[in-house]
């Protein structure tokens, strides 16, 4: 397998991260915001993998598994919250949930 240069891997990770970030910033729908956050997480994971491959260390992959686990937990909590918000407010607009100024 040809060596992928580290730069291209990191550039891909950055692009993904920025795309996710823009998604979080621009979307009003909470589900889309959650998806965007997932993209950002995976971008970070990708950066770890690339770094691990570069120095031939297992740490990068270990870190990625951590991120994956955390993402799963986050999604489960996030989806539960989204259900509750929808139940309460009858909408998925994140700006609608500003009642508590939190």
């Amino acid at each position: 397998m040809d060596d992928v240069p580290i730069e291209s891997g990191l550039v891909l990770a950055s692009i993904l991260f920025i795309l996710g970030m823009i998604g979080v910033l621009t979307r009003r729908n909470i589900i889309f915001m959650l998806i965007s956050v997932e993209i950002m997480l995976n971008a970070a994971g990708l950066a770890f993998i690339v770094a691990g491959a570069k120095w031939a260390q297992a740490d990068g992959q270990v870190m990625f598994i951590f991120i994956l686990t955390m993402a799963a937990a986050e999604v489960s909590v996030g989806l539960a919250l989204i259900l509750q918000i929808y139940h309460q407010l009858k909408t998925l607009d994140s700006d609608a949930a500003s009642k508590m100024n939190g």
């Binding site: 970030m21 910033l25 700006d95 500003s98 100024n101 939190g102």
Partner: peptide
Amino acid sequence: TQGGILRWYIMGLV
């Protein structure tokens, strides 16, 4: 700044 609009907070973070 503490208006309850989530996206503003994220903007601040960014």
